[in-house]
Nucleic acid binder design. Structure first.
Lengths: 148, 148
DNA sequence: GTACATTATCTGACTCGTCAACTATTTCTG
DNA sequence: CAGAAATAGTTGACGAGTCAGATAATGTAC
């Protein structure tokens, strides 16, 4: 029986999503830190660069995908650059834009991190669902994922 | 065809979970900010206090549930306290412990925020799934949610 | 083409949270 | 029960991101 607005079951359902993701995030973060010496934020940035069709992204495209402000994106790239994992290059057709791309070292770190991450995902995520269930989860998440 | 470790489909599946949650988080955060003047972090803290059986929680219990360090928990409660939304009281049986509980104002703010949040959830989350699908999502998330 | 809005990036000041060290209390163990 | 270990909370110094404002380049409307 629902007596207060705060007991609404929709809040509870969403909290389940939040908590699941938070706990996985915590596990994976520790693991990446221990195995590759990088944070999940760095991991995601490197991964997005590796997966981008041209091998590079404008700073703000990267930042937007990761839900950072433009200032935050600048600073993240500053740190990745200082660590030698990415480098900035000027876009030849738009002089406002700075492309970011992986360095060889960045690629190496990303590969090592990914091997660990895939093991972690297998252990805590995919091995706990059948192929059928994973497909269902994909479908349901796609249904509620906001555009953008 | 998978050519690089970074193309592993398990990474892609998990990214889907991360992005879905991130986008919903962004939407709900803006909405809570506009309607009740609080962040999602504050909302979650107030909600957990409201839902706790005794109406109060030790600072670190709250912090742990929210994945904060003890220092972070102290400072979150400092700010909520300064805003008049919660208050600290000493635990009568363990003098190390400080309980946190909602003030009347905190309860009011939480109620207002919750009404908006339920509307947002309905619009972006629960209305996009049938009752059956929601039950399936609950089950799948429970399966992969790490303990603790 | 000129004026005006838009976009990409960067920066200074600030907020939020971490980390490590410290105090106070409680619990465990012989 | 004494001493050691664990637990709850706080704090200073710092790391990572926000916000608002600046600058430079591009796009749009007449």
């Amino acid at each position: 029986m629902k007596r207060f607005i705060t007991d609404d079951p929709r809040i509870t359902d969403y909290s389940r999503l939040v908590e699941t993701q938070r706990r996985l995030h915590r596990l994976f973060g520790r693991s990446l830190r221990d195995s590759a010496g990088i944070s999940v934020v760095w991991y995601e940035a490197l991964l997005r660069l590796a997966r981008s069709p041209e091998g590079h992204l404008p700073i703000n495209a990267l930042g937007h995908a990761m839900d950072l402000t433009s200032g935050g994106a600048t600073r993240l790239v500053d740190r990745l650059d200082a660590a030698g994992l990415v480098e900035r290059t000027s876009c030849p057709t738009d002089r406002r834009v700075q492309w970011v791309k992986l360095t060889d070292k960045g690629r190496q770190v990303l590969d090592r991190a990914s091997e660990q991450h895939v093991r972690d995902l297998e252990e805590h995520f995919t091995s706990r669902l059948s192929g059928q269930e994973l497909a269902t989860l994909r479908r349901l998440l796609d249904r509620v994922r906001p555009a953008d």
